[in-house]
Design a protein around this nucleic acid. Structure first.
Lengths: 340, 340
DNA sequence: TATAAATTCGTGTACGTGCACGATGCAATT
DNA sequence: AATTGCATCGTGCACGTACACGAATTTATA
């Protein structure tokens, strides 16, 4: 149409220069008018370009099997996009070991990937990574836990505060006026997860805002996660007066509380926590855990890679905040959420 | 490797004959041993084959906006798979008009698509369609409502009975012993939706099986869906003695009940229904509807097309029953389920 | 034995794009 | 006038597969 060869058109499309302004404009005009879009299938076949995405995740550990799910989502996405030259390079760290996190970041920086998918566990090190990326124009996406940062490509995860708010709503159905509730934070390291605190904030604000629920809320922190420490810690609270009607655990460790309740044959309380792990589901089956809130972990990993795929291969614009639905899990519907 | 040309290998792969048994076996052997898989990108580029999928859905109507969502999912899938030669041909019928359903089936049979995605509304006509498909070896997939049929390729939708069961569990949190509950079926036509009845069955069986909940359940059918008929019908029930503590509506018409409750300023009841429609969400916002159960309508349409895509293009085996998660929707999390 | 028919196979072209290489034309330099 | 340099553009091959066509070989028929 423009009276030029495909080579010239190709140069225009890829901004490779070596085209006069006159022909360039002519070609651009025609591309627009005829609604031409490159055939990604042919493009993929012809191009030998390979996109290397670094994936910075915690390694699965005995204390929490959670992170195997996002990894499964990543692998699923990699399988689907492998044809298009996407390869994932995994950098797994020990989530309780800051040095291990730092080391993997060093490796990433050294290996120069085309993009990075980050589970931001430790603050300073994360900042170092994203500053390096910004400098080298490497896009990066956060997963699971958000990061205040305007130059990120995207965040894929849950609105943590809202999830706590939702938990409170669920709690409100089964506790009457004047009841006493308990929020439990149970974790070895506290500094690194703002979104855990957001859950607590959300939970509290529900009862503050819905003033028709007159509720007394206790906060409790458990730092040592071995069985004995938990037992001692909880005995104290529950023995005072067993007046607690509901317990909200701000992470996936809720099964440890459930176990305590079961073994001590406490009066039933409404128990709400996070994540569909094997251990948690056991107690859902036994009706000890009432609700679990799911973060859609598989979709997080899948969405993280797909975001980069859309950005690089399909040239789509991606949304900066991608909040996944907050799924409510009970004994009756959990089976439909597992598998993959 | 086999000492033959690509042409011969191609004939083996596609069972096009004209290959001696000896060479065929040799090639097959090598394909297996070397884990060869065809490059779908190159295949798509080279092949001019077009797959025409017929989509038999209800047309969106003022009474229910539900079916626009599966259609959106279908369109999304078609966009993604368009490169691979997938085209959708839509056959939309009036869900309250059996003749319209029949007519579209005639058109489908006449047009000879490569596969059919069916929302099975009327029984006999559906049987006629799938018998025709079986005869002509055209695969078909059911969506939303299941169909007892061993030769279908797949079903994509929800486990209806389990969703009713789940609704009952949610109800159980907010009603004390001895309460009276109400199940409302509200629909112009009753014969065509077994899965609506399954919801009721599931709800009832929860309270039968969990005998620690002593609950009295009333059933109520509303056939005329205009406002006055509903008013009259409900007035009768609620006026007797306003002792009803919870209402379960077995479909998306729950907003009509909510409206009645609002306008008559009835004592608050726990109200549970189906589907995230505009009208329903209004009453969720007002705290009149407590829970909605979502059928993941968009995913149903998306999954229906993707099932056929996997079958035809990727040669993947597809599962015969694909049950989507039963999402629990409240005022706090509904926002994350809409959009797309 | 010669010829026809059937079977089995190889070759060439196409799909739409990326990219290396070389060709062309014109202006600047020697 | 001859040469060089630069900007601009076209050509050809490659990617891995599908498929039409015709060639080669074997088997059947007269």
């Amino acid at each position: 149409m423009a009276g030029v060869s495909v080579g010239t058109v190709d140069r225009v499309i890829h901004n490779r220069g070596e085209v006069s302004d006159i022909t360039r404009n002519k070609v651009i005009r025609i591309i627009k008018d005829s609604h031409y879009v490159p055939d990604i299938v042919a493009r993929t076949l012809a191009s030998k370009k390979i996109y290397r995405f670094a994936v910075l995740f915690p390694r699965e550990n005995p204390d929490s099997t959670f992170w195997s799910k996002p990894l499964a989502g990543v692998n699923k996405a990699l399988k689907e996009t492998g044809h298009y030259g996407i390869v994932g390079e995994k950098y797994l760290f020990d989530q309780f070991n800051r040095t291990s996190f730092k080391k993997q970041i060093d490796r990433i920086i050294h290996n120069e990937p085309d993009a990075v998918l980050i589970a931001p566990f430790y603050y300073e090190e994360t900042v170092r990574l994203i500053e390096n990326c910004s400098q080298r124009k490497i896009p990066y996406v956060f997963i699971n836990s958000n990061f205040q940062d305007s130059s990120k490509l995207s965040f894929v995860g849950q609105d943590s505060k809202q999830s706590g708010y939702l938990a409170a709503r669920l709690m409100s159905y089964s506790v009457e006026q004047g009841s006493r509730l308990l929020i439990i934070n149970i974790s070895k390291v506290l500094d690194n997860h703002k979104h855990i605190l957001n859950r607590q904030t959300g939970f509290e604000s529900f009862f503050r805002e819905n003033t028709n629920h007159k509720i007394d809320i206790l906060n409790h922190y458990i730092k040592d996660t071995d069985k004995n420490s938990i037992s001692n810690s909880l005995n104290e609270i529950f023995s005072k007066k067993n007046e607690i009607k509901g317990v909200f655990v701000t992470n996936s460790k809720v099964y440890k509380i459930a176990r305590f309740i079961e073994e001590n044959r406490l009066k039933p309380v409404t128990l709400i926590g996070y994540d569909l792990t094997e251990e948690n589901l056991q107690y859902v089956e036994k009706n000890i855990i009432d609700f679990l809130i799911s973060q859609r972990p598989v979709e997080q990993g899948y969405g993280g890679i797909m975001t980069l795929f859309n950005h690089f291969v399909l040239n789509k614009r991606v949304k900066k905040e991608q909040h996944l639905p907050i799924d409510i899990i009970t004994k009756e519907n959990y089976k439909f959420y597992i598998k993959h």
